[in-house]
């Protein structure tokens, strides 16, 4: 049984609505621009941390080169997400560009963790719907926050924990699919090291760089061991 795209994205709905609203409220209260710029950024930029950083850069009238560098560095972890999805997005045709555009932390998590059937075409279609739904939640959140601005009063404090809970659930699902604990320990350890030595804005990318380096080293060792075995077989044969 494969759950529907909507059901899969429900946790993201609960995470993206309040986070998008937080961005919208921040945008409307800190800046003197029309409220609809907030959802417009949700449509065009679609990056949580990036958009929140954009508010402070806009407020400071930052130079455009500085804006480019800050945004690129902040979002550099996406580089690694793409690397692990090269094969999966193959043959996505017209949807591919949007699948790539919509690659947030949460969408990446869902797309790489969910169970897949043999039907590639259908799975890519589900990937597309998941990506679209997630961005829809985000844009609605940005619009609501920007429009309501100062008048937001309802108490949704803490609801953004849904995203953390989702990451925990997906970690368990990844473990069950792989049946190996090594990548989990690696991720946890890398997070620990990054949090110990790096300031908050660089912790995610720092941890992802550590993980990627260790995986590359591990690959090389694995490959060398295979090569040794093979040459060993040849001399014996």
């Amino acid at each position: 049984m494969t759950p529907s795209a909507f059901r899969l994205t429900l946790p993201i709905l609960f995470g993206y609505l309040p986070l998008g609203m937080a961005f919208g409220v921040l945008f409307a209260t800190q800046l003197d621009y029309p409220w609809w710029i907030a959802p417009l950024m949700g449509v065009l930029v679609y990056a949580g941390a990036g958009q929140i950083l954009a508010v402070s850069l806009l407020a400071a009238h930052a130079g455009l080169l500085e804006v480019f560098i800050a945004m690129f560095v902040l979002n550099a972890r996406h580089l690694f997400y793409g690397l692990s999805l090269l094969g999966q997005f193959r043959g996505a045709g017209w949807r591919k560009l949007y699948l790539i555009f919509g690659l947030t932390d949460e969408t990446y998590s869902l797309l790489t963790s969910r169970q897949r059937t043999q039907s590639r075409e259908q799975e890519l279609h589900t990937d597309f719907r998941i990506t679209l739904l997630n961005q829809f939640y985000w844009v609605v959140g940005c619009a609501a926050g920007g429009f309501l601005g100062h008048s937001v009063t309802f108490n949704s404090t803490g609801i953004e924990f849904a995203l953390i809970a989702l990451f925990i659930v997906l970690t368990i699902e990844q473990y069950k699919a792989l049946d190996e604990t090594f990548p989990l320990w690696l991720g946890a350890l890398a997070a620990g090291v990054a949090m110990a030595v790096l300031p908050a804005p660089h912790q995610l990318i720092g941890a992802i760089v550590i993980v990627s380096l260790v995986l590359l080293l591990q690959y090389r060792r694995h490959r060398d061991a295979l090569a040794r075995n093979r040459s060993g077989e040849e001399t014996h044969g």
Partner: peptide
């Protein structure tokens, strides 16, 4: 392996 490790570190 990257998705599993990234998921754990995000969590």
């Amino acid at each position: 392996y990257l998705p599993a490790a990234v998921m754990a570190l995000l969590a």
